[in-house]
Nucleic acid binder design. Structure first.
Length: 753
DNA sequence: GGCCCGGACTCAGAAAAATGCAT
DNA sequence: AATGCATTTTTCTGAGTCCGGGC
């Protein structure tokens, strides 16, 4: 689990959320910070391991990818990313589709009038019913003008795999059908990127959905499964029993060994008990959940070994739920909802040393849920006997339903799938802002270099922070309320204890050593040479401060972002992350890949470029438990193949000899050809496996997904695929292609970020 | 007029589920 | 063809960022 990786080992003690007024000026003495949080030895060792391999990985990537981050001491100008010549490109500032297709006007009737409730059956329902009879994919428009873009994800269920054996033709036919369907799907896709945008702030004109899906109510345990307290069977009431089961289910998890988790759980559990239960059960250590735990494990196991038929039935019922609740109608188009299921109750699992871990996350009732939909739409029915908290019709927001979660008091939303217009449009815009930054980043960099010399302390701090955000792609670092969350920081909230200054380290001058926990308690460890000016300023910022004091005591994200938006409308700290990630990908792809490479090598290059970004953004993962094993397996496979290749080669030699001996025997010639082919095939396979091994090893604790999904302008990848003649599905899987449909459609080989 | 608080949205890794692949 | 394991994809929900409204 995540926490294990990094939790609590980075330097740093307690969070010290300060209001700006409370902040110390750099001249005033600082109040005493608490002693740094102690970490267990085991934890520490884990950290070291992580940090070490992280460093190793960095070195590796740098070497292999020709140092995307040069460790140059002189100045940041030596950083390759900073030297990027701004290429002249057509200014498409106004967020306009780049090519393909003229703008298509929205059909006149489209905006306002949606389907209305006046008809007997709700629109969504009717749509579904129709679907059963006729293939809706063939009908472009219904009476209401709703186009069906998407079929349920799993086509197979419509054509259940029969138990009869399939002939080759059948398989072929199925394949062809699949391809055809994909094409049709593609044709029916809502090409929103070719339409005009709505006026500012308006997210939709019509929205209809069935409301969220609620998890089933809790059922009592079977009679033969018992909870024991102090060795005696105790029959718990429904409420207490349900919560007990939450804990029992997690018994294998490290969480249940943590004091904070156990205490929070016990406290909240007792609240769910009857008076009697509460009197009796006063010590968690005397609780025996083992039977509940076993039952749970058996249930999981049983699900695994279900028969094919049972699995199919399950699949069918799930599909029905998705069909009914998983889609909405937004401005005449059927769109997939992202999280239409209400989160079931359970125990809160925070990341890292979260002070609230183990608390009870309560069951959400319809009475807690606010529904958002169009006035003229068919209002979703609450479950029988219930009512909604509120039904509103706010088209300036994108959510369909929301509720307040009890542990942190924050809002939760039901929103659309990444493939939807609402998400896609925003995504596109994000990359356009990043591209705008590209065209003026040199000026901004010059300015903050100047600002570092400013007389104003605030300006200097802002400049240094921005330098870090730009150079290291750090997050902004909002202030957090102390004691409410795990102690993590970003750039603006860095504390003195999170950096160490080295005048000289490993042959480099002015090195800043970062060591802190970032988002999700992922440790950031990096040694970075900086300019003399930055170094001197850091020394000054740290003067007379305690380890727990803020490094940038005159700065916060609000101030920083205000400044940034004055430089370029829409510019915020996080745009730098997007920009630097995307530009790094583009440069790395340029440097690493060659048209003459074979397909496997091209993919390796892509992955390496992606990896360079993931390293930059510090996207980590826990190496899979089976990593070493699977690596060894692959290696032995490689060895096996090598032997095979050697054998094939010697056979080829022999055959050649034969041919020489009995010159021009056509049969023997054929044998030689066959052997040649065998050798070639062997070589190819060996190569492929070796590349795979390299890729996997380099990827051991780097997570590529986050950057691919959230930071890399998909148009870079699409253009690369076109240039390199790599099929797009080698890079993006189905849902990624759906998410980036706008980019796939509009991007040509000539795209430059 | 600034600051603080909460709403709305993006981004994040873990875990579950599905799929692929070897035997 | 069935099984079992590895890998990939999807789901889940917590953790950030940023902005605007109200005081």
């Amino acid at each position: 689990m995540g926490g294990e990786k990094n939790v609590g080992q980075a330097k740093g003690g307690k969070a010290k959320a300060k209001t700006p007024r409370q902040r110390l000026s750099d001249k005033e003495g600082a109040s005493g910070g608490d002693s740094p949080r102690k970490s267990t030895k085991a934890n520490k060792e884990r950290t070291e391991a992580t940090a070490k391999s992280q460093r190793a990985e960095k070195v590796k990537v740098q070497k292999k990818v020709k140092a995307f981050k040069t460790e140059s001491v002189e100045s940041f100008d030596d950083d390759v990313r900073f030297n990027l010549a701004v290429k002249e490109e057509p200014e498409d500032g106004d967020f306009v589709p780049e090519k393909r297709g003229k703008k298509r006007k929205r059909p006149e009737d489209e905006p306002m009038e949606g389907p209305s409730c006046s008809s007997a059956t709700p629109t969504l329902n009717r749509k579904l019913n129709e679907k059963d009879e006729a293939d809706p994919r063939t009908e472009k428009n219904t009476k209401e003008g709703i186009k069906i873009e998407k079929k349920p994800r799993k086509e197979e269920a419509e054509h259940p795999v029969t138990t009869k054996k399939k002939s080759k033709e059948e398989i072929e036919a199925a394949k062809a059908l699949k391809i055809k369907k994909r094409e049709e799907e593609e044709q029916q896709r809502w090409r929103w990127w070719e339409e005009d945008k709505y006026e500012d702030g308006i997210k939709w004109k019509f929205l209809e959905h069935r409301g969220p899906f609620f998890p089933p109510e809790y059922q009592h345990l079977p009679d033969n499964v018992n909870f024991y307290y102090n060795g005696k069977v105790v029959k718990l009431g429904l409420a207490a029993e349900e919560v007990a089961l939450f804990f029992a289910q997690m018994l294998d998890h490290e969480y249940t060994t943590k004091d904070v988790f156990r205490n929070n759980f016990f406290k909240d559990w007792r609240k769910e008990m009857t008076l009697e239960e509460r009197v009796l059960i006063s010590d968690l250590n005397k609780c025996d959940f083992r039977e509940l735990h076993t039952m749970h494990k058996e249930k999981v196991e049983a699900r695994k070994v279900m028969s094919k038929e049972e699995k199919l039935v399950m699949k069918g019922t799930n599909q029905k739920i998705v069909e009914e609740y998983g889609f909405c109608i937004l401005d005449h188009h059927r769109e997939r909802i992202g999280n239409f299921k209400i989160e079931p109750p359970g125990l809160f699992r925070g990341r890292g040393e979260h002070p609230k871990q183990g608390m009870l996350k309560k069951r959400i009732q319809p009475e807690d849920v606010i529904i958002n939909c169009a006035k003229k739409s068919c209002i979703p029915e609450p479950p029988a006997g219930h009512h909604w908290k509120e039904v509103r019709h706010d088209n300036t927001v994108t959510w369909l339903a929301s509720w307040t979660e009890n542990v942190q008091g924050s809002c939760k939303y039901v929103m659309l799938n990444p493939s939807s217009k609402l998400k896609g449009e925003k995504d596109w815009e994000k990359y356009e802002v990043a591209r705008r930054l590209k065209s003026c980043v040199n000026g901004i960099r010059q300015q903050y270099q100047q600002d570092i010399k400013s007389k104003q302390m605030e300006t200097r701090q802002r400049a240094v922070a921005l330098y870090f955000i730009d150079k290291l792609a750090l997050r902004a670092g909002n202030e957090k309320e102390e004691g409410e969350t795990a102690d993590t920081v970003g750039c603006c909230s860095l504390r003195v204890e999170h950096i160490t200054l080295h005048d000289l380290l490993e042959d480099k001058d002015c090195v800043v050593e970062f060591d802190f926990l970032g988002k999700d308690c992922i440790r950031y460890y990096n040694k970075v040479p900086v300019t003399k000016r930055v170094f001197k300023n850091l020394k000054l910022f740290m003067k007379n401060k305690e380890p727990g004091d803020d490094l940038f005591d005159r700065l916060n994200t609000c101030l920083l972002n205000k400044h940034l938006s004055s430089l370029l409308p829409g510019l915020t700290a996080k745009v730098f992350r997007t920009f630097n990630a995307s530009i790094t990908l583009q440069e790395q792809l340029q440097q690493l890949s060659n048209m003459t490479d074979n397909p496997a090598e091209k993919l390796l290059s892509y992955n390496r470029a992606n990896r360079a970004v993931a390293v930059l953004c510090n996207h980590q993962r826990v190496p899979p438990k089976t990593f070493d094993q699977s690596m060894a397996n692959l290696q032995s496979k490689i060895d096996g193949r090598r032997e095979q290749l050697a054998l094939a080669k010697s056979e080829l030699k022999l055959a050649k000899k034969e041919v020489k001996a009995h010159s021009s025997d056509s049969k023997l010639q054929a044998v030689v050809e066959r052997k040649k082919k065998a050798v070639q095939r062997c070589e190819e396979q060996l190569m492929k496996m070796e590349v795979q091994a390299t890729n996997r090893e380099e990827n051991k604790q780097i997570a590529l997904g986050t950057s691919k999904l959230n930071y890399l302008d998909p148009r870079i990848s699409v253009a690369w695929c076109k240039n390199m003649e790599v099929p797009l599905d080698k890079i993006y899987n189905k849902s990624q292609r759906d998410k980036f449909a706008w980019a796939v459609d509009m991007t040509g080989a000539d795209f430059i970020f």
